[in-house]
Write a protein that binds this DNA or RNA. Structure first.
Lengths: 254, 254
DNA sequence: CGCTCACTTGAAGCAAATCAATTAGTGTGG
DNA sequence: CCACACTAATTGATTTGCTTCAAGTGAGCG
């Protein structure tokens, strides 16, 4: 199971050749630094759909970067109700919320077949104290996560069902675009139930809202497949300030 | 206005004698390190009520630690509606969400007379690369902020008005307790309107809920003054998992 | 004293939740 | 390959918790 060294050379993935280069940690690092980073990265077999990456309460040891696929994180209250707290796409980092008390406050599960890079935190921390630019990059990423959560909060607090779903789709669209996927045609890896949970709505409301969007010609859906016809209108509905946390964010260019 | 050096010695506040020692950055640092931290800290005149600390869109230069008083942060959408994103008490750090794109995504305003420590980020970053423990502490604090936002999210997504207000009060209570204030008697520095906005509810709902809590004997209020009579019941209402981000969090001791 | 502003309380309206019934996919074993 | 169960999603009818609208109260202040 843990026969890493042999397979590694076979897979031959490396930060410097990774297509997520400019989304993930290596942004702004020089070649030598990237090689040092590469040395601490562990790459294991991909997770299948519904497999756990870690469980709530587990000891925190590593940060994970999504290489392909997608992951959802969620917390569970003792009443048993579950709240999805994050959806992670390729190039995004999972586990940043676990640093402060050394255990994961949420569980993480694969929404589809997903491969990851594991970054043992001790090594990452040590390396980042030697490479100031890595250090800065880590701060930036954590800061971005904070800012992203806060705009999601804003969404929850005072948006209607329509606005929430629109914002969710627009956000997903722009994140996919930044990863060179289509911004208008994609597959939702989350179920209606998950989306509802994530947005603080019921499955019925999500379903109805999708139906209405479709009858209004904004988009068409077929189960998990979504085709956005009027991205502009959807953005407007979402409140334009598409609570985006992506590099292509319009507010950045301002 | 910026005649700092003279006044500084007069005020004579220093991290090592600060009562917030174990809440703020110096946690776990040795005396020598604290002195080095002290050298980069700027302490200016206190802010009066309703004065701005910084404005949304402003260039990010410093992190601020609250020494006394309280600060609220909020974002404003182009439609003009405002969303409060944070309430900061003594010992807490403001501005962590601004690191990633070098400008503040929200505005910060004093809720009462408030004094702060300003930590120029460049210096802090440099110092933290020299002091591993400071480095670690910064990560912990940012991580805690992420985890805190996520539980607030959970609150918004699937809690009733009662549960939200209860959770808010319980959270405030435990944070005040950690600062050696009473956990049952305190003044709300936020108005009903602000509380409503923060929790995604209207001012009327907040008012009604307070009235009901009072008639049920859970607490009594007189304008901003709150006296909690049955903290236990309130905690239960809040869902026990008091989305706490404080050192005395029960889940920590588990 | 009368003004304003923050808060309280009541009544009506509405968006989303809940309850309920169907339909469409997915998987399983005969 | 087809019947079977099982889950995901859709659609409709009803209920409800919160908002909105509206009026009133009380504290603080010139």
């Amino acid at each position: 199971m843990t026969s890493t060294s042999i397979k590694l050379s076979a897979i031959k993935t490396a930060c410097k050749t990774c297509s997520l280069h400019d989304l993930c940690l290596p942004l702004g690092l020089d070649l030598g630094d990237i090689e040092r980073l590469d040395e601490i990265v562990k790459r294991s077999r991909p997770l299948h759909k519904s497999e756990y990456l870690f469980n709530s309460g587990e000891k925190f040891t590593s940060i994970y970067a999504v290489r392909s696929g997608s992951i959802k994180t969620f917390t569970e209250s003792e009443q048993g109700d579950e709240q999805i707290t994050g959806l992670y796409l390729p190039g995004e980092l999972i586990g940043l919320d676990a640093i402060h008390d050394n255990q994961h406050p949420c569980s993480a599960i694969a929404l589809e077949t997903t491969s990851l890079c594991e970054l043992p935190f001790d090594s990452l921390e040590e390396l980042s104290s030697q490479i100031p630019e890595l250090h800065r990059q880590l701060f930036r990423i954590m800061s971005k996560e904070i800012a992203g959560d806060q705009s999601l909060l804003m969404l929850m607090a005072q948006k209607s069902a329509d606005e929430r779903l629109a914002a969710f789709l627009v956000n997903l669209s722009s994140r996919l675009k930044a990863r060179n996927f289509s911004e208008t045609e994609f597959n939702l890896t989350m179920s209606r139930k998950d989306i509802g949970n994530y947005l603080g709505l019921t499955i019925e409301t999500i379903s109805r809202t999708f139906s209405r969007f479709q009858s209004e010609g904004l988009l068409s859906t077929q189960r998990k497949y979504v085709n956005i016809h009027k991205l502009g209108e959807l953005k407007e509905l979402a409140g334009i300030t598409d609570h985006c946390t992506t590099p292509d964010c319009p507010s950045k260019t301002a």
